[in-house]
């Protein structure tokens, strides 16, 4: 009797997670219907976002999300791979330990703090270098890249470390240099894991809100220069959700949330199931 109750309780709790995820999609879709019906595809192709006349085109926000994530990847990928190579092939044990602690430290820092740091310390530098306000796409991309760097470097290093020592030694035994071993053995061997790690970091970057909200602006305008202030989906949601005043406005914000969820869901699923399958199952 108690046995039955207990097992049903656990099953219910487990199913709850599926229910919640399905419910999130359904609820966001239902809330978006008004905007979907009103604007159709114009929602994602037009960039006129005018709450005062109830016109909503999210092109600028979508573009901002994609562009800031792209910039972040552009800065973060080479550095993360460099750091991963440094950690797995160059650094001594003490430095590895030190960096391990540093990664934990950085992961413990709430993303809102990256945003604050970006606003007060990084944006002024961009402003001095490039003129303008400093707030904009470039700042957002760089702050975002710093935010995902530790995670990306750590998972890339883990992927590289799956290469068996004996395989690396074989390449050294043929007279290879460290770089020969890295490019010809480690990277090809760990390719799936490395790509998966990078895509996973990308999935996180798309949805990151607080690190970029401070430094992006919130201007619904597709930027003409990389230093122009613009917006992204999370930035729009963070700034406008609590202030929306018409049902169409709300509905448009919900549609943005739905788009964001769908984008990150697809990216993360590709990383997890296409590239990281083996590691994840641990077999």
């Amino acid at each position: 009797m108690i046995d039955k109750i207990f097992s049903n309780l656990t099953r219910f709790s487990a199913l709850l997670i599926l229910v919640i995820v399905a419910w999130i999609f359904v609820e966001l879709y239902n809330q978006s219907l008004e905007a979907i019906n009103a604007f159709g595809f114009d929602f994602i192709t037009k960039d006129e976002w005018a709450p005062n006349v109830d016109k909503f085109g999210a092109y600028a926000a979508i573009f901002g999300s994609v562009a800031s994530t792209f910039l972040a990847m552009l800065f973060a990928i080479p550095i993360a791979i460099g750091v991963a190579i440094f950690l797995s092939e160059i650094a001594h044990d003490k430095i590895k330990g030190f960096f391990g602690v540093s990664v934990e430290l950085l992961a413990a820092i709430p993303s809102v703090i990256y945003g604050m740091w970006g606003l007060f310390y990084f944006v002024p530098i961009i402003r001095d270098l490039f003129g303008g306000m400093g707030i904009g796409l470039l700042s957002a991309g760089i702050v975002l890249s710093i935010m995902i760097l530790p995670f990306m470097a750590a998972v890339t290093r883990d992927a590289m470390n799956t290469t068996p020592d004996i395989l690396k030694e074989s390449a050294y035994a043929l007279g290879g240099t460290q770089w020969d071993v890295i490019k010809d053995v480690i990277i090809p061997y760990a390719r799936a894991g490395i790509i998966g790690s990078i895509i996973l970091a990308l999935g996180r970057a798309i949805g990151e809100t607080m690190a970029v909200t401070f430094v992006m602006g919130n201007v619904h305008h597709t930027p003409s220069a990389i230093t122009d202030p613009t917006t992204s989906i999370p930035v729009t949601l963070a700034n406008e959700f609590a202030e929306a005043d018409s049902s169409l406005y709300f509905s448009s914000l919900f549609e943005l949330a739905l788009l964001l969820l769908a984008m990150s869901f697809v990216v993360i699923a590709i990383a997890k199931f296409y590239f990281l399958r083996k590691e994840r199952r641990g077999v």
Binding site: P164, I166, E169, S170, A171, A173, L174, G175, D184, V185
Partner: peptide
């Protein structure tokens, strides 16, 4: 590097590199 091209090594387990048969042999 020179020493290891003069003194080769075969390991406990086969260590084929993740590349084609030809490229494996041509690697050194």
């Amino acid at each position: 590097i020179h020493l290891r091209t003069k003194i080769g090594m075969i390991f406990q387990k086969p260590t084929a590199f993740p590349m084609s048969i030809f490229d494996n042999v041509a690697y050194g």
